Simulated assay, not measured.
Amino acid sequence: MKIILTQEVSNLGAPGDVLEVKDGYGRNYLLPQGLAIGWTKGAEKQVVTIKRARAAREVRDLGHANEIKAALESRTYGLAARAGNGGRLFGSITAAEIVDAVKAAGGPILDRRRVELKNAIKALGDHQVQVKLHPEVTAKFTVKVAVAK
């Protein structure tokens, strides 16, 4: 099955990539999740628009990615969340909340889809977060979750 990715999919490709995938994977996962659209000649024309939007969001080059990495790793970012007994959160911290905290602290603007959370953040304290800025650059920084007042 031939598809066009509309969002980044780990180990598969980036938005605008035209790929050949197994029928079941495309039909049962990629298309229903909105991660891809079926390939047609009309949809092929949308690839230019998708790639233009991706270029606007993307880090310019390796040097720029390293600058952003240095800015991210130089500080700790704080988040306030409601918590119950024992420091357990009501819900969890999302990638969007992390991006907002970095932006509010004067850090660089990040794409929430590039934030990689190994485990869900469901407790108070310090947590390591990774952001894939470039295929060769991954930034690791600390998010401190405290009780909201």
Rank of each mutant, 00 (worst) to 15 (best):
R54C: 02
I37F: 04
D100W: 02
E58V: 00
I68T: 09
I98S: 11
N28V: 09
K69T: 13
G63V: 14
G24N: 07
L30W: 02
G86C: 03
A71P: 00
A101G: 12
S74F: 03
G24R: 08
G86E: 13
I50A: 01
D23A: 15
D100E: 15
P108S: 02
A53W: 00
G78E: 15
R82Q: 14
R112E: 14
S74K: 12
K41H: 11
R57I: 10
Y25C: 08
E20D: 10
G13W: 03
R112T: 15
L30E: 06
R60P: 11
S92V: 11
W39V: 11
G38I: 08
H64S: 14
K69C: 05
K45M: 10
Y25P: 11
V18K: 15
L79G: 01
N85C: 00
R75A: 15
E67F: 10
Q33R: 13
A55C: 01
V47W: 01
H64K: 08
Y29G: 12
I109Y: 10
G63P: 00
G38Q: 09
R88H: 13
G87N: 00
D111T: 07
A65T: 12
V99Y: 03
A53I: 00
A14E: 09
L79K: 03
V59S: 01
Y25L: 14
A65N: 05
G63K: 14
A71Q: 15
V21A: 08
A80T: 12
L35F: 05
K103H: 13
A104T: 12
G84D: 07
G91Q: 06
V59H: 01
L19H: 02
Y29T: 08
G16K: 03
P108Q: 04
T76Q: 12
I37Y: 02
G87S: 02
N66C: 11
A71N: 09
R82A: 13
A71G: 06
A14N: 10
L30C: 12
E73I: 14
L72T: 09
R54T: 11
I37W: 01
A80F: 13
G13N: 05
L72A: 12
V102R: 08
L72R: 02
N85W: 00
A83C: 11
A101L: 10
G78M: 14
A105H: 04
A71H: 07
G24P: 09
A55N: 04
A101M: 12
V99D: 07
A70D: 06
N66Q: 15
A101Y: 05
G107C: 13
G63D: 15
K22E: 07
Y77M: 10
A104F: 07
G107V: 13
P108I: 04
S92K: 12
I68G: 03
T40C: 09
R60T: 15
I93E: 01
K45E: 13
T94Y: 07
A65G: 11
G87C: 04
L110T: 10
H64F: 05
L62G: 01
R52Y: 02
N85Y: 00
F90L: 08
T49M: 09
G63H: 13
